[in-house]
């Protein structure tokens, strides 16, 4: 058994807990002993991107304190939140310590603690592919594979630079991921940007859906998926408002379904 600490993210926790439960099953089937630090809340990225760095640092310090007691991997159910912990925490916290009257030693200490936590953070599909780095499962017939549209979140792509992992994780489960035109364009979510600048955000969601629909029509994809629930809630919320119902599933939910089908089929 490989112990891992699960970081579900606030959005999975509150709005899609079933995605978190699916992730637990997916992890356990791959030999993980899932632990869930129950004091965890939110990574603070909403506040950070909004310019509220002191507020973000409060949440960041809480996160570090909650997760620093072990040395197991921290599996995050969001590429964006993982990137926040890994890339922004050390300097965010250190700068906040200094700007609120802390000493240089304190800042350096916090920075070190944040870095140690960041080194352990890993997004779910990265963890999955790490378990079987050799790649796709051989037992699946590519032709009969279920096709899904894969949306790659911007922070997954550009901060974690994990461009291959969600695709590889899906392929390992016999799922055929399809990419959309202009795949490197943001879906318009952007955290609180989706609320403060809803018109631009929605225009981007509509542009993304146009590209998704083209792929769906061509390849008969069964759902839209991503390693980031934030993008998905935004895209799903948009089509829901327009009265459309194309299935939108978080990556772990897709893999969990495939796992169950495989178990049922053999």
């Amino acid at each position: 058994m490989k112990p891992v600490e699960l970081f579900v993210t606030c959005m999975v926790d509150a709005f899609r807990p079933t995605a978190g439960i699916a992730a637990v099953r997916v992890l356990e089937r791959r030999g993980a002993e899932v632990r869930f630090p129950q004091e965890q809340t939110c990574c603070g990225q909403f506040s950070y991107n909004g310019g509220y760095h002191h507020e973000a640092a409060q949440l960041a310090r809480h996160f570090v304190a909650v997760f620093e007691s072990s040395d197991h991997p921290i599996v995050a159910l969001s590429g964006s939140c993982a990137a926040m912990v890994i890339h922004e925490y050390p300097s965010l916290i250190a700068e906040d310590v200094l700007s609120t009257g802390g000493s240089k030693e304190e800042a350096a200490d916090w920075k070190h603690r944040a870095e140690q936590v960041g080194l352990r953070a890993i997004e779910l599909s990265q963890w999955i592919t790490q378990q079987r780095p050799e790649g796709a499962a051989a037992s699946h017939d590519a032709k009969s594979a279920t096709s899904v549209v894969l949306h790659q979140g911007c922070h997954m792509r550009r901060l974690l630079k994990a461009n291959a992992e969600p695709e590889a994780a899906l392929r390992q489960s016999g799922i055929q991921p399809l990419t959309v035109g202009d795949e490197d364009q943001c879906c318009g979510f952007g955290g609180t940007y989706s609320m403060t600048e809803w018109k631009v955000s929605t225009a981007l969601a509509d542009a993304k859906w146009d590209n998704i629909k083209k792929v769906v029509q061509e390849h008969a994809a069964t759902c839209l998926t991503s390693a980031d629930l934030g993008c998905l809630l935004h895209l799903e919320g948009r089509q829901s408002r327009l009265g459309e119902t194309f299935p939108v599933l978080y990556l772990a939910e897709v893999i969990d379904q495939a796992d169950q089908q495989e178990k049922g089929g053999t």
Binding site: V8, V12, D13, A14, F15, R16, P17, G20, I21, F36, Q38, T192, S194, M195, T196, E197, W198, K199, S201, T202, A205, L233, H234, G237, R238, S240, R241
Partner: peptide, 25 residues
């Protein structure tokens, strides 16, 4: 509040009857 803009053009699932935290508990 600040979430208002979201709902100008999109829906959102409600906070779940049982959050992941609660499920785990």
């Amino acid at each position: 509040g600040i979430a208002r803009g979201w709902f100008m053009s999109r829906n959102m699932p409600p906070v779940a009857a049982e959050t992941f935290h609660e499920w785990w508990d």
